[in-house]
């Protein structure tokens, strides 16, 4: 007998329906299949009006983010045999719903526009030289595929109305702040505009990151420390002021 799995998929078009509901589908099981395969089976064979967002099906583009049995995950990277044969798939809860499993993640690019772009030092001779060791530090953050699962799981974003940019955007800032030849310091901006202080380091974001980026440990805490060192540490402030004076005297 053909093995089947049961999918309970969230359905709602908020422009015409007040409330959504879970709709049950039966899908044949194929060895090694991922949740996206099952959801696409529904879309192609059972109901072509089901809205999903996907693209590469290789965990490289970060389009197919959703909540699988309540956990923020990539549908293309979640094997059915790891989540059981009765699976509930709902859209990301932290973003406005467009339709069914598709949410409006557009606000993320508005935030990205506020983060100053890479600003190289001006004194560099071309072609630039950098050491692999220095490159490695920023490389971790560049693995980010902008799936926004970290934004989705973040309780500061989900449950509170704060200016906090969210984990993805701290990672973006850190990727440039830790570029060996960047001359900008984004920590102040993150602190004053981006609500960095609202993050209370629960580390949920790094637990759900499909790229296994140590978001809290290596990006958020580093940026927080940088902000504190540069702008709140009284001793550092004094030294800085003295240096500035010396420079202006010279």
């Amino acid at each position: 007998m053909e093995e089947k799995i049961i999918l309970n998929i969230y359905r709602q078009d908020p422009s015409i329906e007040q409330k959504g509901q879970l709709q049950k589908f039966e899908v044949p099981y194929v060895d090694g299949m991922v949740v996206l395969d099952a959801v696409r089976y529904v879309q192609e064979k059972l109901d072509t009006t089901l809205a999903i967002r996907w693209n590469c099906k290789a965990a490289k583009c970060g389009s197919c983010s959703a909540e699988i049995n309540g956990m923020p995950r990539l549908m293309c990277k979640t094997r059915v045999d790891t989540v059981g044969h009765n699976i509930t798939v709902t859209p990301m809860g932290a973003f406005p719903l467009i339709k069914d499993l598709v949410t409006d993640v557009g606000e993320n690019w508005e935030i990205l526009r506020k983060i100053p772009k890479f600003t190289p030092r001006e004194d560099m001779e071309s072609p630039w030289k950098m050491q692999q060791m220095d490159v490695e530090r920023s490389k971790e953050f560049r693995k980010c595929i902008e799936c926004f699962l970290c934004q989705d799981v973040c309780h500061v974003i989900r449950e509170h109305s704060t200016p906090y940019f969210g984990p993805r955007h701290v990672v973006k800032a850190a990727s440039m702040d830790m570029h060996p030849l960047d001359s900008e310091d984004r920590s102040r901006m993150l602190d004053q505009v981006g609500g960095l202080g609202f993050c209370n380091i629960t580390k949920c974001c790094q637990d759900v990151c499909p790229e296994h980026i140590h978001i809290t440990d290596n990006a958020i805490i580093q940026e927080k420390e940088r902000a504190v060192d540069n702008f709140y540490d009284p001793l550092a402030r004094l030294i800085k002021r003295k240096k500035t004076k010396e420079r202006s005297v010279a």
Partner: peptide
Amino acid sequence: VYELERYGALFDRTPDGRIL
């Protein structure tokens, strides 16, 4: 490639610091 580096891309490096 060098332009992309100036835009902010970070390539892997040779031991003497050039693009690998």
